[in-house]
Simulated assay, not measured.
Amino acid sequence: MDATTTALREWALYLAAMGWPVFPLRPGERAPALHGRRRCPGTGPCVEGHQGWEQRATVDPDRIQQAWAHTPYNIGIAAGPSNLVVLDLDTAAKTGRDAPDGTDTLAALCRARGVELPQTYTVTTPHGGTHRYFTAPPGVVLRNTSGSLAQHIDTRAHGGYVVAPGSLLPEGGYELHDDRDPVELPAWLVQALLEKPAQATSARAEIPPERRDSYTTAALRNELDRVQRAARGQHNAILSRAAYALGQLVGAGLIDRDAAARDLTEAAGHMARSDCDCTTREITRVIHAGLDAGTHRPRTARPSTEAA
């Protein structure tokens, strides 16, 4: 076994030990080395149906030893099974356009929201870009995005993979820049990635008139209960989702915004008193950001056709 193959195998084993399922990419490339659906032989691991790279990614050391026994495969990390959300910050030079880099546009997003992005596991790419690894909050399923956060920022989550450190391209290697454990994706980024463009009123979720009061009462109670029961480490994510959900009701005219903000603030009071980094200022910011976002995508109630 040559030195390059040995080094790539050791990287694959190290990443698997982090709990991140890996799979081989073509040597010197970023594409999976596994066969696609169209060329599936229907044998081996695919005997009961095609298994793609996400299904075949593994943390099993024996399988990794076997896969990287003789060939210098690059390494892919299946983001979804790894519970990772990776921010892929490209450079403008990579796209051939004179524009801010992904690092610059991310910094602008942080400034606009008055927040700092926490340091986390980080990898640099051969093209001068950066991969910043975060863990997904419990109960949140995020998908891949391309430019929806800002120019030159993509994300890799469920359904996506990231080229791992140690991998080699003709232009250079993917190098580990910061080896601290990935931190949880900040709530404001979760919220931004969950937001969808506003749809036409007819396509929005509708609340029948006869269920309006009971629906609103139950929705309000459920969201406030979730906030009150939020465990340490999940405060921001749960509060952000609750504020967004109640913001949808505010936008529909079903509840009062000020009342929703007061109820959420009261329910979140334990967060500022707990042994974590939550502050009253941050709680207020998360509540109002979530209410604003939800208000722009309201739930609507069908008008009653009953005669007065």
Rank of each mutant, 00 (worst) to 15 (best):
C278H: 02
T135P: 09
H288C: 00
R26C: 02
G159S: 07
R262F: 02
E184H: 02
G80S: 05
G44H: 09
P186M: 06
T300N: 00
L239K: 08
D275K: 15
G147E: 09
G44M: 09
I77M: 05
T103Q: 13
E306F: 01
R285N: 11
L25G: 06
A231P: 00
F23G: 13
R113S: 11
D60F: 02
H288S: 04
D277Y: 07
G294T: 07
P27V: 02
L249N: 04
A252I: 01
V286E: 13
G172D: 08
V286P: 07
R241N: 09
R37D: 02
C40Y: 08
A69Y: 02
A99L: 10
A268R: 08
Q65L: 12
K94A: 12
L142R: 06
H50A: 04
H288Q: 14
T103L: 10
Q119M: 04
H158W: 12
G102L: 02
A78C: 06
P126A: 01
E29T: 07
A237G: 04
L291F: 05
A99I: 03
R37N: 03
A293D: 10
G247W: 11
I153A: 03
E116R: 12
A187F: 10
T95N: 13
S82G: 11
T58G: 08
G147D: 09
G147R: 02
L8V: 01
S240N: 06
A99T: 09
R111K: 13
N236V: 00
S167W: 08
A205K: 11
D88I: 04
G166T: 10
G166K: 11
Q228H: 08
S240F: 06
D60W: 01
A31K: 14
L8W: 03
A260I: 10
A289Y: 11
V115Q: 12
R180Q: 12
S274A: 15
T6A: 14
R285H: 09
P100T: 01
L169M: 15
Q51C: 15
A261V: 13
S214H: 03
P165V: 00
Q248C: 15
W53V: 14
S240G: 14
N83C: 04
L264H: 10
A259C: 01
D277N: 10
Y121Q: 12
Y244A: 03
E171R: 14
L13N: 05
A301Q: 14
D101V: 01
P298G: 04
A245F: 01
K94F: 11
A79T: 15
I153F: 04
P303H: 07
G172P: 12
R273D: 15
A192V: 02
D62P: 00
W11I: 00
R273Q: 15
V250M: 03
T124K: 07
T201F: 02
G253I: 11
G42K: 05
R204C: 13
A259T: 13
A272W: 06
G114Q: 04
R229P: 03
